[in-house]
Nucleic acid binder design. Sequence first.
DNA 1: ACTGTAACTTAGAAACATTGGT
DNA 2: ACCAATGTTTCTAAGTTACAGT
Length: 705
Amino acid sequence: MNSSQSTTGSKKRKIKAESDTTVTNKNESSDSEDDIALSKRRKITPLKKEDVKKPLKKTTKVKKEEDEKPATKRKKAPTKVKEEKVSKRKKKVEEEVEVFRWWDNEKEDDSVKWTTLEHQGPYFPPEYVSHGIKMKYKGEPIDLVPECEEIANFFAQVIGTDWAENPTFRKNFFKDFQKVLKKKMPGCPIKKFEDCDFTPIAEYFAEQKEKRKAMTKEEKEVIKKEKQEIENKYGWALLDGRKEKVGNFRIEPPGLFRGRGEHPKTGTLKRRVYPENVTINIGENATVPPPPEGHKWGKIIHDNTVTWLAMWKENVNDSFKYVWLAAGSSLKGQSDFKKFEKARELKKHIDQIRAEYTLELKDKLMATRQRATALYFIDKLALRAGNEKGDDLADTVGCCSLRYEHVTLEPPNRVIFDFLGKDSIRYYNEVEVSKQVYKNIEIFKRPPKKEGDMLFDRLNTTILNKHLQKSMKGLTAKVFRTFNASYTFQEELKKTVKNSTINEKLLAYNRANRQVAILCNHQRSVSKNHSDQLKRIQDKILTSKYQRYLVSKEMLEIDPTLKKKKPEYGRLSRGITKEFIKNYEEKELEKKKAKLEKDNEKRKAEGKELLTLKDLEEKKRQPTLERLEKQYDTLSKRIKAQQLLLIDKDENKTTALGTSKINYIDPRISAAWCYKYNVPIEKIFNKSLRNKFKWAVEVDENFVF
DNA sequence: ACTGTAACTTAGAAACATTGGT
DNA sequence: ACCAATGTTTCTAAGTTACAGT
């Protein structure tokens, strides 16, 4: 499924060798900016504990940010329907919205998450409506009852994608399809997947899609309005009397499970969820939302030690699904804040921890040695903890669950990691490690250990985390990822040049972001036309190279002795084929002709005589060596720039910056950077990130992670 | 220690919306 | 003005961790 993995995954990344085990105290270098005039500083309320003692006001009334849509969009409303809607929306925007400033007043104990809680329950997808389009079996149209037709639809929707070709997906789908057929349509002739033809349904869906695309503005408006109404109703909860946004209030619709990687259950039917399957969690005195007609809630509870509003059990993997508040809510914000504070606390202990595990790498107890080695990787490479998984899940690993075959040794001290991690994303990394670590891996891989065996057979995440708690309260393996990501980011940001332009600063910001994303191995699949884009740039590079070659040849014509000093002159680069040259010359000729025509038109108007290509050739003045050298130089520079762009583009195409920005990098680092370098926060945090991080943007420019 | 349950964060893909270059 | 590139939001899968029970 992850086609991107297998093909392009082998980018080599190197991390610095042993030198950085000698832990330098880079933490306290709080190079503050004393040289900024106070007037220039942004006035902000610093987030310091001493200042936190103003508990009088818990909430502040503020005007909600104006709707950021450009006004032009609104003016375009040609119909009455829209006019009306626009004015309504405006009114809503101008309403005063309460912002709960929980960060002014930290709570120590957060085991109780709320005292009152009201909400509308989850929103259920509409019941299935039959379309009556018949799939074919052995070429014959087949009548299906709605329950079966719906499942046939699920497969039809997948036709044309990789899923439809995936054998496991097909097998699991057909098994479940048959189960339902047998129950709902006894005696149904459908027996073999290969004889099924879902294309009539697929074609029907394609038509529907076209129709939807061709809808008029008015029709689209109506749909949008309906959607908005659902959001208005189900999208909000009242938590301790405050209006807070609900995240995923929609019950997941039925469909075929799309597991990632080689998931054994991919294609399995994910059944429709009914109110009877759902537990509602709500305040004791709150009105329980009415379940859809003719249904009852599975259970109603009033547990204020948890944050979910509704819960159900899903049938494919037997796991729970929850309805939670949105990322910008106070509950999520508070736990985010706690997460980063914990990571910052690790900073105080990290030297000690590193010293300890470095010692323990040589411990005579194998279990201790393994623990130390695993911790070394978690710390240095930001690997995930790596819980053991059942064989009804995709075979992926993290640090503790690494197996023999995932790690190879290359003398004298290189370790090569190659395994599938979370979401079956490939982790490939060549790392130089300390002699001791290298030796340890050698020992852990010693026969009779073989492929399929655990590398750390005396270790699991529970043992590791238990041990970590001894160094710091609440410390677990995942804190290292947060810590190292945020810390790396802060260090990388120091490369920002003070007096550069905003764009250059943003480039520095994104570079730092990318370093973190690379550290955490955050990848994204390469877009379909990515190779086209690269080819275009590569073509430009080749063109420049060929031009440079032509220039160098001219130089050699003037002074053949140059060849001795500059052997690269007159040498064609690899990749420049005869075809390429032919192509290039043709294009050049075209260009010349076009230009000539244009010039001649002008000349005609001015009454001058017309020119031919030959005339141009003769008119060209003889270049000097000096001039040619300059040209050669310019071209070389251009080639370099283009090659950089190529690398940049390629790396960005496979690296996803969002995940680290959202989950790993302490937003206060970003905010402080903005203030320090005078970059508007909107340039780095979009609307939803500003909302998610509203607790963080109030730091001052001297914030140090 | 081992297993299963529960609750939460983290993750990439896909759908959808906006922007900006020709 | 069009449409491809890019950015944002939604969706839900896949992790981590704590903890209860055995």
